[in-house]
Design a protein around this nucleic acid. Structure first.
Length: 253
DNA sequence: AGCACA
């Protein structure tokens, strides 16, 4: 009986799991799907959270203690606040996101502050006799992140599009009549089918996402019928992946 | 479940 209102809970702040944590530039996300590879996870988090403002860094680790968790560092605290509120419960790799403010300031913020204290001074636990296998892969990490972080955030703050809510307007010339297949344009080139699936599969009737390698930036998303595709279109119209606001129309028959 | 700065 307590779950009757669940459909609208996300719109309000019923679950203030972050009540006792003060605002922070960084959001702490847990209950993440632990099967997702770190690089993909970071890219997807970037894709989904950059709509709230400039992201300085996304951190996630595969160690036992830190699996299923990630930190997204925003340039502005207000971005973090919007992210915490609006993305609470967002379906992401089949889990509902749990988002709080981080408990402590991120290094990258402290460095900008001038309050950064090098890690040695604040290390609480010394590793004793730990065998460290020096297997860096900074190249992959840097490459993935650089591509994700490439664009300078310069868009106006029209980030008031919450995830379930309707995003209206910005409907282009609509040459195609309603279709159960949606045609999605203006995607950033680094968009993956998984990223789109996360967004579109939350709407009923979702069948599949198809991307065309030869044509980056577009995708087809199929639903069971036109009514379902229309609901999804209205729900995600204008949703920003990284810097791009996706544009959804009906596919031509 | 789990708050780091690979």
């Amino acid at each position: 009986m307590a779950e009757i209102n669940q459909g609208t809970d996300n719109l309000f702040q019923k679950n203030n799991i972050d009540n006792d944590i003060p605002p922070n530039n960084t959001i702490y996300i847990n209950k993440l799907n632990e099967k997702i590879k770190i690089e993909e996870l970071k890219k997807s988090l970037y894709a989904v959270f950059s709509q709230f403002g400039k992201i300085l860094e996304v951190l996630a680790f595969k160690t036992l203690k830190h699996k299923g968790q990630a930190w997204v560092v925003f340039e502005d605290v207000s971005s973090a606040t919007n992210a915490v509120r609006q993305m609470q419960g967002f379906p992401f790799y089949n889990n509902d996101l749990r988002i709080q403010y981080a408990k402590t300031k991120s290094d990258i913020i402290a460095k900008a502050d001038g309050t950064f204290v090098p890690r040695e001074k604040r290390k609480r636990h010394e590793e004793k006799g730990k065998k460290r296998k020096e297997q860096h892969d900074p190249n992959q990490a840097a490459a993935a992140l650089n591509s994700a972080y490439a664009g300078a955030y310069s868009a106006p703050p029209l980030s008031q599009i919450p995830y379930p809510g309707g995003a209206k307007s910005m409907i282009p010339e609509a040459p195609a009549p309603p279709n159960n297949i949606l045609f999605v344009q203006n995607l950033p080139h680094e968009t993956t089918p998984m990223m789109l699936q996360m967004l579109f599969c939350q709407f009923p009737g979702f069948k599949e996402v198809r991307m065309v390698e030869a044509k980056p930036g577009i995708a087809f998303v199929e639903y069971g019928d036109e009514l379902q595709s229309t609901v999804a279109m209205q729900g995600l119209q204008g949703f920003k992946i990284v810097q791009n606001q996706m544009l959804i129309t009906y596919a031509k028959k």
